[in-house]
Write a protein that binds this DNA or RNA. Sequence first.
DNA 1: GTCTATATACCGATAGAC
DNA 2: GTCTATCGGTATATAGAC
Lengths: 196, 196
Amino acid sequence: MTRQEERRAQTRAALLDAGAALFATRGIAGASVDAIAEAAGRTSGALYDHFGSKEGLLFALLESWVDAATAAVAAEQAAATSLDEWVAAMWRAVSDPPDGDGRWIALEHELWSYANQSDEARRYLARRYAAAWDAIDAVTGPWVEHPAEATRVGPAVIALLFGLEMMRRVDPDVVTDQLAVAALRGVLAGTAVPTT
Amino acid sequence: MTRQEERRAQTRAALLDAGAALFATRGIAGASVDAIAEAAGRTSGALYDHFGSKEGLLFALLESWVDAATAAVAAEQAAATSLDEWVAAMWRAVSDPPDGDGRWIALEHELWSYANQSDEARRYLARRYAAAWDAIDAVTGPWVEHPAEATRVGPAVIALLFGLEMMRRVDPDVVTDQLAVAALRGVLAGTAVPTT
DNA sequence: GTCTATATACCGATAGAC
DNA sequence: GTCTATCGGTATATAGAC
């Protein structure tokens, strides 16, 4: 990689990082292009050169997460040797993400709000969640059997995980690990039949 | 009521209605005071006179919902004669609100996003959800017994209801009534002990 | 690639007439 | 109470120098 390419990659990474931080704290509408560029140690011209627009930066940011998140889920899946272990690991991944701080949930809410205004954001959301549902269905396959009726565990599990994380944000004490795991087990038992 | 007071009440109602519509479609940051006032057939001066600021309108709006929502839940509670009936009624109230269109969920997301930036909004959210948890705990009291361990059904049920409605927004077909009821029953069974 | 400078437009809020 | 007019500030995006 030439020095030019290195510098370019650094600029791109810095802009993505600054965008994530500012979108989460000030909101997508509230974070100005100038503020993001300044936080990255660059100017607005650099952002437009790399991503074309503020929305371009947003989607590049989301794309980079999908890779990280799917990798994390795959790792959890490989480590778990029972359904209970898997449920606990899944909740840990959501409640204490390896990413570090809890800014991902703030950004997720921003994205949901933004989906009300942007068709492209809504389509993106639909694609991403459909993939997550499939992943949950696949990973629970060895342990549960889907009943004949049209119920899927994937959407129900993702719904509960997201909802529990929201409740935890309102009051961290009320959603204990024990409560989360018990609720998740309950949803699995309610929407699928254990095979063992 | 004098004609002056009537006119004032009409203006207030029109501003609240316009605010709900525009906050939901354009976001709290994206809905300008002028646009809200114009949609209500008034000018920005009227809004500042009634609510003091854009945030003032937002909180007045939320306050008016709490009354409507708690009344709706109380009605559902009175009509249900079994836990299954109650679960189904609860899901109906969320998925097909009497209010009409589905703009309440859009506004709820806006509020969650806004809570990242406003302490007052965060406190409001905490108060409102704590009340909702208590209401669920109370209404399920006749049918389930809370175990000795520190698990509560309220936060888990609200979490799942909210999460399911989000999933339904991504793909309306994937969250069938059957799936929602099965998942809710599962969460109740997982976090509490039936008394009957 | 990154900068400065700038075009163009809209924002929330206020003042004062009526 | 509601209006018009307006202030001061900030937004996204572009043009062109380097």
